[in-house]
Write a protein that binds this DNA or RNA. Structure first.
Lengths: 168, 168
DNA sequence: AACGATTACTTGAACAGTCAAGTCACCCGC
DNA sequence: GCGGGTGACTTGACTGTTCAAGTAATCGTT
């Protein structure tokens, strides 16, 4: 996804990095596979049944949670794990489809508010059950409650590791 | 990722799909966030240090595991969780960079073999330590051995759920 | 041995995401 | 109250991925 920017000076051989044990490697490969295939299955269902990508659905869902169905672009970008640029393009597309509109914040013209339209809300409501059903069958119900808790906790740990400034 | 194909007949309201409980929803959101951010961090490191995307790295890695550094396109596609089309484009790019070459299988001309070049192998060897270090710090060492096992097991369950034919 | 499937790709067009370079509003010091 | 700086986006060019429609080699059936 990211693009090359500064150039590949194949950095000085990093100090003795222990390779992965075979269990670790197997675990990593399983995890990668799940992280590739699960999102894809979710995307397929949404695209087929609602004509939305997951991130589009997610953006609409977050908007629907606000009392005014309104969020600032930057806030929505954070909530949906998107870059501001990506969200800007995305909202432009949704706007072209009449699901969302944009207007500058009255109090501070630098902010742009994304506002869900009635059509957007209707589409969300119409597509939520199918999406939730898929998430249930592929994730929630595929794991025992304990496994789900563990899985979520581990994900939380990964997110924490991502926060930590990386030295390399 | 997938694109719309047959059109959105907003399918008849699915039979009573129970919504997610708030714990379930929180878990799902955490999982989604991790599934979005972790791959991105991995991609960034690889792109910056090796000029490779994760899937390109993965393809080279799989090729390097074969005694002849050779795999059929279709097999490599499966191993890297890519569509054949995606892999075809990808290998064409790697070929243009001299990291891989292609030749038709001698025994059955329908197959195409992807063969890693010396340059490809060198790039892989040069970039592996940095990649492994990142995987270690973000995943393997971010979890306890038990958590890693649980996480991997849960991922396995998700993959099994993905196999199961989905009725919706 | 001919010809219609089937298999294994390859290609092209469309489109989404990335980065870098804008733009435009507001703030702050003087 | 003007001018440089910062913050919040927006835009454009480029690239990677997808889907659909090719192509080309082999297999199966008669």
């Amino acid at each position: 996804m990211p693009r090359a920017t500064a150039q590949r000076t194949p950095k000085a051989p990093t100090r003795a990095v222990p390779w992965l044990s075979s269990e670790e490697e197997a675990a990593w490969r399983t995890i990668v596979q799940a992280m590739v295939r699960l999102p894809w299955a979710i995307e397929c269902q949404l695209q087929r049944d609602a004509g939305l990508s997951f991130i589009e659905y997610h953006a609409l869902a977050r908007l629907s949670e606000d009392p005014d169905h309104t969020l600032r672009m930057s806030e929505l970008a954070m909530l949906t794990n998107a870059s501001l640029s990506r969200l800007s393009h995305l909202i432009k597309r949704l706007e072209a489809r009449g699901l969302v509109r944009r207007e500058p914040d009255v109090e501070d013209g630098r902010y742009t508010n994304a506002i869900m339209t009635a059509a957007g809300y209707e589409l969300l409501v119409a597509s939520a059950p199918g999406h939730v059903a898929r998430v249930r069958s592929l994730v929630i119900d595929a794991l025992s409650p304990t496994e789900l808790r563990q899985f979520s906790r581990a994900s939380q740990r990964l997110l924490e590791a991502l926060e930590a400034p990386t030295d390399s």
